[in-house]
Write a protein that binds this DNA or RNA. Sequence first.
DNA 1: ATATCGATTGACT
DNA 2: GTCAATCGATATA
Length: 206
Amino acid sequence: MDRSTHSTSFYNRDVCTVAEELIGCLMVRARADGPPLIGRIVETEAYRHDEPASHSFNGQTARNRAMFGPPGHAYVYLIYGVHSCFNVVCGPQGTGDAVLIRAVEPRAGLPEMWVNRYGTPWVPGERPDRQVRLLTAGPGRLASALAITREEVDGTSLESGPVVLMPREAEPGEIVQTTRIGISRAVELKWRFVEAGSPFLSRAVG
DNA sequence: ATATCGATTGACT
DNA sequence: GTCAATCGATATA
C-alpha cells in the first residue's frame, strides 16, 4: 500500500481546485491501538474567505483560528452545538479558505466506525434503521464515525497528525459540481463537488 | 445582557 | 412534513 501523503503544495492552491481534487483521496484516522479507520472522499464543498457563507468571511475568531493557519492542516468546528465538521485548510497561510469534507465511503475499520457512530456493535437484524450508508454520509456523521473532535484534531497537520490525507489510488468516477448544502448566503455558487452516483453522498445530486 | 441563527442530525406527527 | 439539541458568533440594547 502506498503510504505517501499530499505535500503542502497540494493544499496551497485555489480552494475549489483542491475541493475537486480531494474527491477520491483517502482520509486516514490513526488510532492509539489497532489499524487506522479509512474513508474514501466522495463529497466536498469549498468555502472561500471573500464570500459570506464562509466562517472566515468576518475575520478570525477563537473558533476559526485554524482556518487562518498553514495549508494542509485541519479546521474542525462544532455545528449547532452538537456535531463536529472536518475541513481542510487551503491557500497561503492567513487567507482563510477551507474545504469541508461532507461524505466518505468506508474503506477500513468499519466495525469500529459502527461503534463510534451508534455506541454499540453491529448485531444482525437489530436496528434496521442503522445502516452502513449512514455511517459517513454527511459531515457530522463522518466526524462521529472517525472519532474526529475539535479537541483532538483542530489545527493538526494532515501529513503527520491524527488524520492524514492520501492521494487517489485510482481516477475517481465522474465529478459533478452543484450548489452547496445548508447555507443561506452565496447560495448560487456551485462549489460542491461529488462523485456522481456514489451511494455514500449526504444527498443525491439534483 | 439578551436574542437569534447556524457549512446538522435524529426523533417524531 | 415539524422540531429539539445546544455551542459560538453576531446583532441589538
